[in-house]
Design a protein around this nucleic acid. Structure first.
Length: 179
DNA sequence: CGACTTTGACCGGCGC
DNA sequence: GCGCCGGTCAAAGTCG
């Protein structure tokens, strides 16, 4: 029997949404019955970020569009030696930047599906080189692109250091972990 | 040849 | 106004 986990903000945590991985402990894991069997040793966690950093226009094209787009962002913190975790969607890298106070660069990816404007950022933390912070931005407008049998590769990756598997179902459609 | 990555340039926001 | 910084663009390169 599988147990599913959904990570939500801890109501007892300090006000405001987290803006750094250090605040990720403010989030709790709950099961399908809304119980809170928090696992302190969880190696993959998720948080919902605010979108204020997303409200400004960026890039060359914004000069012509002038639109302000606000979308919710979701951040996964995963302990893995693999930088790119295969979540079942196809991504195209469109940029990489050195980030201040971080010795690892941040990579920028966009979903390659036509009409889908989901983006993600992948960054390894300076404080713990085995932690990969993946930030998703937007909602996929299409089903997962890889057949279920390819999830085996996901499980292989996650088995490196994590006690449970991540089925590549993208938030916010579904935010489950399974063990 | 198409899909993808790399990388320097560019842009806008923000703090001083 | 200026410089720093994060995010994006796009040309060139790489790969299967």
């Amino acid at each position: 029997m599988e147990n599913h986990w959904l990570l939500l903000k801890n109501s007892s945590a300090s006000s405001g949404l987290p803006n750094s991985p250090s605040k990720i402990s403010n989030y709790l894991a709950i099961d399908e019955n809304m119980n809170v069997p928090l696992r302190s040793n969880m190696d993959t966690q998720m948080m919902i970020l605010d979108d204020k950093s997303n409200s400004k226009c960026k890039g060359k094209s914004s000069k012509t569009t002038g639109k302000k787009i606000t979308r919710q962002r979701y951040a996964f913190q995963t302990r893995s030696r693999v930088d790119i975790l295969d979540d079942g969607y196809r991504w195209r890298k469109y940029g990489q930047k050195a980030v201040k106070n971080n010795k690892f660069p941040r990579s920028y990816y966009r979903c390659t599906h036509q009409g889908c404007n989901v983006k993600k950022q992948v960054q390894r933390l300076t404080e713990d080189e085995e932690i990969v912070l993946t930030t998703y931005e937007g909602i996929h407008s299409h089903p997962i692109e890889k057949p279920p049998d390819s999830f085996e590769s996901i499980l292989k990756q996650m088995h490196i250091d994590t006690p449970f598997d991540y089925f590549g179902v993208h938030p916010p459609v579904c935010r489950y972990f399974t063990m």
